[in-house]
């Protein structure tokens, strides 16, 4: 089984109601479990700020803490007027394609962690079938995290950036 086939399998399962899937093919054993009952993760601000200081140029180290924070606080109350609980906003991919952080290989990236963006600012390009799509942010705020590596494939609705709208 190729990596691509496994990926397709995961996509297929995530779109279905199947919660657990087991497969044995020769030496290969695959077990996939989906956790459908968990609500869409809501990101709390506090742990993220801790994990990814705004000035830090390399966001890589922040990956694990952010994910953990999301997993343990899925039902964080959304109180917009409470700055301490302000939620991060996800910028998602509107299509399947390849994610690029800069307009061309030799050009600087559109946004870095810590950059302040306005609604309508281009944050990345997603290329699909020779169509080059500049993705505009729908929110203003500060880029807290870049969720995808440059030049890697992205799925529909995959989170590309986390933006703090209150920063």
């Amino acid at each position: 089984m190729t990596f691509k086939e496994i990926k397709e399998l995961v996509t297929l399962l995530s779109e279905s109601d199947i919660k657990e899937f087991n497969m044995v093919q020769g030496d290969l054993k695959i077990k996939i479990r989906t956790d459908k009952d968990v609500a869409a993760p809501v990101y709390s601000q506090a742990p993220v700020v801790q994990a990814a200081p705004m000035a830090a140029p390399a966001p890589v180290a922040a990956a694990a803490p952010v994910a953990t924070a999301a997993a343990v606080t899925p039902d964080l109350p959304q109180t917009a007027d409470d700055a301490a609980n302000a939620n991060l906003v996800e910028v998602k991919s509107p299509m399947v394609g390849t994610f690029y952080r800069s307009p061309a290989p030799e050009k600087p990236v559109y946004v870095n962690v810590g950059d302040t963006i306005k609604e309508g600012d281009v944050v990345c390009i997603i290329e699909a079938m020779k169509l080059f799509n500049e993705i505009e942010s729908e929110v203003s705020g500060k880029i807290v995290k870049v969720m995808v590596d440059d030049a890697s494939p992205v799925e529909y609705d995959q989170v590309l950036f986390l933006v703090d709208p209150n920063a």
């Binding site: 020779k130 799509n133 500049e134 993705i135």
Partner: peptide, 26 residues
Amino acid sequence: WPNDVYYQNHKLSGILIKNFIAGQNI
């Protein structure tokens, strides 16, 4: 496919499309 125009094995054109997307819409 995806967006070239050919006569037999001769390429006759080039197309390069750029979209600006906010949310779900082009």
